[in-house]
Design a protein around this nucleic acid. Structure first.
Lengths: 126, 126
DNA sequence: ACGGCATATTGATGAATATCGATACACCTA
DNA sequence: TAGGTGTATCGATATTCATCAATATGCCGT
C-alpha cells in the first residue's frame, strides 16, 4: 500500500451538503443584493435618515449616481426583502425591513450550520 | 405654508452614512463572494466534509461543474477570506476560516449598525 | 528523467449587470 | 385642466462574471 492511498482525498463517502440547492439559490440572491458598495451605502444612508427612512432625492447626491440608477438599486434591495417603500405624495420613502438583515445572518448561522466549526466534530468517522 | 412643505423629504439636514465608502467596498466584496449558489454549496460541502475539509476532486461532481470552474470559485472564496488551502501531496485541501463568516455578520451588526433598528430612535429631531 | 495525476491558470464566449439618457407615470398646485 | 416635480421604467452600452476547453504547473511513483 502506497503512502498516497493513505492520503487520498476521495476515499471517504461523500457527505451531503447541509445546504439544499434551492436554499443556496435564495441565500445567494440575497447576498448578491448586498454585493454592491452603492447598495450598502443606500442601506446605511436610509438607516441613518430621519425616522429611519429616506426618499430617493436624499440618496442620489451622496452616491454621485443618477436618479434612475438609484431607483434601480432600491428596487433590487426591495426585491431582496431588505427595504420597504411607502409612498407619501409624490415622494417614495424607503426604510429597512428590521428583521431582514438579522434573519440573513441567522439563517447563515443556524440553517446551514456554516458558522459552527462542527465540520471537524460533526462527522466522526462511522 | 403648503402641506407639501411639511412632508417634503429634503428639508432635514442629510445624515452622514454610518458606512464609509471604503468599508462599503470591502463589505460588498465579501458579500459578492457569497452571492453565488455554487459558492455557497462549496462552503456547505467543505463544512460537511471529513475533518471539515475537502479537496477539489470531492467538489466537482456534486456541483456538476468542471474542475477549472470549481478552482475558480474556490479562489474567489479564498480571496474573500472564507477559505484556507492546505496542500498535501498533489491534493489541495480547503477548509473554512472559522471566524470569517461570523465576523462578516458581526461587522454588519456592529460596525454599520444596520441591524439595530436605531434609525427611528437614533436621530431624534434636534 | 519520464509518465501520470490533481490542481491552477489562461483565453474565449455568452450571460448578467451597473450605469446613463430619454421617456412615461403619478401627484400636487395654480 | 395644464404645468411642474419626484419617481419608475425603457433602451442602449460598457463592464463584469460564470463557464468551459486547452494548457501549464507541481507532485508522485517507476
Amino acid at each position: 500500500m502506497s503512502a498516497a492511498e493513505d492520503l487520498a482525498c476521495c476515499t471517504s463517502p461523500p457527505q451531503p451538503p447541509r445546504l439544499e440547492s434551492e436554499s443556496a439559490a435564495e441565500l445567494a440572491a440575497r447576498f448578491k443584493a448586498l454585493g454592491d458598495p452603492n447598495r450598502l451605502m443606500l442601506l446605511s444612508l436610509i438607516a441613518a435618515g430621519e425616522n429611519g427612512e429616506a426618499c430617493v432625492c436624499d440618496l442620489t447626491e451622496p452616491l454621485n449616481l443618477g436618479q434612475p440608477t438609484v431607483s434601480h438599486h432600491l428596487k433590487i434591495l426591495m426585491d431582496a426583502g431588505f427595504l420597504t417603500r411607502q409612498r407619501r405624495g409624490t415622494w417614495s420613502y424607503y426604510s429597512l425591513v428590521p428583521a431582514a438583515l438579522a434573519g440573513l445572518c441567522h439563517q447563515l448561522c443556524s440553517d446551514t450550520d456554516l458558522l459552527t466549526e462542527s465540520g471537524a466534530e460533526r462527522t466522526p468517522r462511522g
